[in-house]
């Protein structure tokens, strides 16, 4: 294994770890905030509401966060951070393979990134 490969590995490892840590932190903060204000509210996950919940779009989440006592919006930002973690990992790999001059793998990683961005644009 080359030195470049190992540096890339360390960078990818750090990215994954920080992404998960950030998501956990936002989940804890948002969750505690939600429960401290809405702990006695009735929750029911038995009926699926689909897109009726305000947490399925960026606009909906930010509208929620700007309101008072909104913990769930913060928790959902944590989920978004988590989704961005593997995407950043792929983006980093592109830079790594590019620096190694490995064109085939630069192309492969770029296609994987494009597939992920396509999926994000559908969501």
């Amino acid at each position: 294994m080359t030195k470049d490969d190992h540096q890339l590995e360390l960078l990818i490892s750090l990215t994954l770890r920080s992404g998960v840590a950030l998501a956990v932190a936002l989940g804890v903060v948002g969750g505690v905030l939600f429960l401290s204000h809405h702990g006695t509210d009735r929750l029911d996950f038995g009926t699926f509401l689909g897109e009726e919940i305000p947490y399925s779009t960026l606009g909906g989440i930010f509208e929620r966060i700007s309101g008072p006592n909104e913990g769930l919006g913060i928790a959902q930002v944590g989920v978004l951070c988590l989704l961005l973690t593997p995407i950043s990992r792929v983006a980093l790999s592109i830079v790594g393979f590019l620096r190694e001059g490995d064109w085939i793998f630069t192309a492969i990683s770029s296609v994987v990134l494009a597939i992920l961005l396509f999926s994000l644009s559908m969501g």
């Binding site: 929750l43 996950f45 897109e51 995407i87």
Partner: peptide, 20 residues
Amino acid sequence: GVTGVASAAIYFGRGYIHPA
């Protein structure tokens, strides 16, 4: 992780991911 994100992004928009 990467495989999960590819479908999670779609599920996110469909409201499958309830933060609570």
